Amino acid sequence: MVKHWFVIAFLSCFSCATQAYCIDDWACFEKVEHGKVIEYWLSNNKPYPITSTLDVRTRNLKTEITVKDRYTETRVLGPLERVKILTLQAIDTHRPVRSKEDFYWTPGIENAQHDDSYQYALPYGKRKTFRVVQGFNGGYSHQGASRYAVDFAMPIGTPIHAARGGQVIDLQQKHNKGGANRNFAKYANFITILHDDGTTGEYYHLQQNGVVPTLGQDIKRGQLIGYSGNTGFSSLPHLHFAVYQAKGFGKYQSIRIMFEK
């Protein structure tokens, strides 16, 4: 989910210098310098909410009320939203100022309030049964952020259905590689659905060209959304499903869920 590379653009105006840093043309921050005053803006270029964090390490800079050497701001940005989150100015105008920025983002709403009583549909067709090969706290890979994920072993090409309705906010289906090594993780095909409570449902290891809906499409519970595969960090053909809650610093955490009986 989290992207780690930057597209950097340099903008200009008559009285200021502006640098804009964007990740996957989705989340951006702008640094606008007016002499020894620096403004920071966050923006979301997509029609879905994101959680974004800007971490600024400084020298000889302060806000109007605070003097620190590090300023951290995490904000939930609505669809296509752009907001100014921080203004810094020189403590001593006769000395140079320094700043170094780190920028992170993840889809969804930070600490979204999940309805723990909600019962999810099994993410495959009715009257079908598939073995769970790794569940909550699975020792192979279900630790940390994926603590509450579930892996269903199933043949490649098995129809996958939405466990909960929402909107498609991210997908990948071009890859055809997979293996039992974390180096294969970047080759996973997947679909991400944003739920109405701000959490996201993640369906991973889909087959190449195995995503049915398009970006932005509204999905109903039980709707066909793709076909299972064996792409990415995967030791056997299976579907990895989990519901995630966004956190600051580009992090996310899976949530304990229940399936309908």
Rank of each mutant, 00 (worst) to 15 (best):
P159E: 09
S141Y: 07
Q134A: 10
Q119H: 10
R131D: 06
Y71P: 06
L54Y: 08
W105V: 02
A180F: 03
E30H: 08
H195P: 02
G166Q: 00
I191W: 00
F259N: 01
K261A: 13
I219D: 01
K100M: 12
Q119E: 09
F152C: 05
L239G: 02
E101Q: 14
Q143S: 14
S235L: 00
D116K: 15
E81S: 04
L80S: 11
E260A: 14
L194H: 11
S52A: 15
S15N: 03
R82E: 14
N230G: 08
D55Q: 08
T51Q: 11
E64K: 15
I91Q: 03
V133K: 01
P107R: 02
F190M: 02
G198V: 02
G166D: 01
V97N: 09
G144M: 12
T129C: 04
F136W: 12
E33L: 05
K247C: 09
F249C: 00
Y187Q: 08
G226W: 10
I193D: 01
F136H: 05
V37L: 08
A145M: 09
S228I: 10
I65E: 15
K46L: 02
R82D: 05
H240R: 02
R57W: 08
A17K: 11
S254C: 10
R221D: 13
E202V: 10
E260S: 13
A163P: 06
S146P: 06
N44K: 05
I38A: 13
A185Q: 11
G179C: 08
N137Q: 13
N230L: 11
I91P: 00
S117I: 00
R221M: 13
S15P: 00
D218R: 07
V132T: 12
F241C: 02
L206D: 00
G178E: 01
P107T: 00
G157S: 05
T231L: 01
E202N: 12
F152V: 05
I38W: 09
C22K: 03
H175E: 05
M154R: 01
G248T: 01
V7S: 15
G135W: 12
A246G: 07
G201P: 07
L239V: 01
I85T: 13
E73G: 04
P47Q: 00
G232H: 11
Q217K: 06
I156T: 14
G179F: 10
P159S: 11
V243H: 03
N209D: 07
T66E: 14
R147Q: 15
A163T: 10
Y48Q: 01
F241E: 00
K251C: 02
Y187M: 10
T200F: 04
F190H: 04
Y140D: 06
N181P: 09
